[in-house]
Computed example of a mutant assay.
Amino acid sequence: MDTEAVRSFVRAAELGQLQHAANELGVTQQAVSKRIAALERELEVRLFTRTARGVELTLDGQAFLPHARDIVTGVERAITAVRPGSRALRIDVLGLRSAQAVILHDYWRSHPEINLDVVTLRVNDPRVAVAAVEAGEIDATFRTVTDPTMLPRDVRTIHAFDSPLELLVGPRHPLASSRTLTPPQLRRHRIWVPGIAPRTEWGEFYDQLATEFDLRIDATGPHFGDEVLLETLADSADVATLVGARDRYIWPTNYDLRRIPIVNPTLAYPLSLILRTANPHPSLAAIIKHFGNLTPLPETVWRPSWATSAPH
Rank of each mutant, 00 (worst) to 15 (best):
Ser8Ile: 04
Ser8Gln: 03
Ala13Trp: 02
Glu14Thr: 12
Gln19Tyr: 03
Gln19Arg: 14
Gln19Pro: 04
Glu24Tyr: 01
Gly26Leu: 02
Gln29Val: 12
Val32Ala: 07
Arg35Thr: 14
Leu39Lys: 06
Leu39Val: 06
Arg46Ala: 14
Arg50His: 14
Thr51Gly: 12
Ala52Ser: 13
Leu59Glu: 11
Ala68Asp: 07
Ala68Val: 08
Val72Asp: 08
Val72Gln: 07
Gly74Cys: 02
Val82Gly: 00
Ser86Asn: 09
Leu89Gln: 09
Arg90Cys: 11
Leu94Trp: 01
Leu94Ser: 07
Gln100Trp: 02
Val102Ser: 12
Val102Gln: 15
Ile103Val: 11
Asp106Ile: 00
Ser110Pro: 00
His111Thr: 14
Pro112Ile: 02
Leu116His: 00
Asp117His: 13
Val123Thr: 06
Val123Met: 10
Asn124Met: 09
Asp125Ile: 05
Ala131Pro: 06
Ala135His: 10
Glu137Leu: 15
Asp139Ala: 05
Thr141Gln: 04
Arg143Leu: 10
Met150Arg: 15
Leu151Arg: 09
Arg156Ser: 07
Arg156Met: 15
Thr157Asp: 06
Ile158Phe: 09
Ala160Leu: 12
Ala160His: 02
Leu165Lys: 12
Pro171Cys: 06
His173Tyr: 05
Pro174Ser: 05
Pro183Ala: 03
Arg187Tyr: 06
Arg187Val: 07
Pro194Phe: 09
Ile196Met: 15
Pro198Asn: 03
Glu201Val: 06
Trp202Tyr: 14
Gly203Trp: 15
Gly203Gln: 08
Glu204Ser: 13
Thr211Lys: 15
Asp214Pro: 02
Asp218Gln: 06
Gly225Phe: 02
Glu227Val: 13
Thr232Trp: 01
Asp235Met: 15
Ala237Glu: 13
Ala240Ile: 05
Thr241Asp: 12
Leu242Arg: 09
Ala245Val: 12
Asp247Pro: 07
Ile250Pro: 00
Arg258Ser: 01
Arg259His: 08
Thr266Asp: 04
Ala268Val: 05
Leu271Glu: 10
Leu271Ser: 07
Ser272Tyr: 13
Pro280Tyr: 10
Ala285Leu: 03
Ile288Arg: 03
Lys289Ser: 13
Asn293Phe: 05
Pro298Asp: 02
Val301Met: 12
Val301His: 09
Trp302Asp: 12
Arg303Asn: 00
Trp306Cys: 09
Trp306Phe: 14
Thr308Gly: 10
Ser309Thr: 14
His312Asp: 09
